[in-house]
Computed example of a mutant assay.
Amino acid sequence: MDTKQKTILVADDDKAIVDSISAILNMSGYEVLNVNDGTSVLQAIKAQPDLVLLDIQMPGHDGVAVCKQLKRQASTKDIPIIFLSASMDVARKAQESGADDYLEKPFDIDALKDKIFHCLNRSRAAS
């Protein structure tokens, strides 16, 4: 898979997390868009990223509400969403909202890269 052509939207209200994820993904060849709240996700999604990394607990619209909205819209329903959260019930929230995968914080960066790779491959295979 050619990661140089893939865009990932990173949404988290913790700037340190966004900065570290962005740096790692940039070094891996991805283009990265950064936002820090749910309302901004709904604006940034217009760029049609290939994947969204979405924190559950953010100001404005939380990640669960954002995910449900994106999965209901024809133009965004097929964009893979991976939840990133310290929430104890992240697995349940991911399943209930239609997220494609999840990762509990703190997370291992290799595990994150693996989940991104697999979600992008599933998405490409489905199209």
Rank of each mutant, 00 (worst) to 15 (best):
N34S: 15
Y30V: 04
S28M: 07
V52A: 02
R124Q: 13
K113A: 09
T76S: 15
K4Y: 05
D100F: 01
A125S: 11
K4D: 02
S127R: 15
Q5R: 14
S20T: 11
A126K: 15
D114R: 14
D12T: 01
K4S: 08
K93W: 07
Q57G: 09
M58A: 05
L33D: 09
D55T: 00
R92W: 06
L51S: 01
L103F: 00
F117C: 03
S85T: 09
S20K: 11
Q43Y: 10
V66G: 03
M1G: 06
D100K: 05
S22L: 00
V18F: 05
A111R: 11
S123G: 12
F117G: 01
I81R: 13
R72L: 01
D12K: 01
D12W: 00
F83S: 13
Q5N: 12
K6E: 04
T3K: 03
Q69E: 11
D13S: 07
V32A: 10
V52D: 07
T39H: 13
T3A: 07
D62H: 04
L9I: 08
A47E: 14
C119R: 13
G98D: 07
I21Q: 09
Q95W: 12
L70N: 06
E96C: 08
Q95D: 11
A23L: 04
I79N: 04
A86W: 07
R92H: 09
V18Q: 10
R92L: 10
Q57T: 10
A11L: 03
A111I: 07
R92G: 08
N121S: 11
F83A: 08
I56R: 10
S22G: 06
E96N: 13
M27W: 05
V41M: 12
A47D: 14
D101P: 02
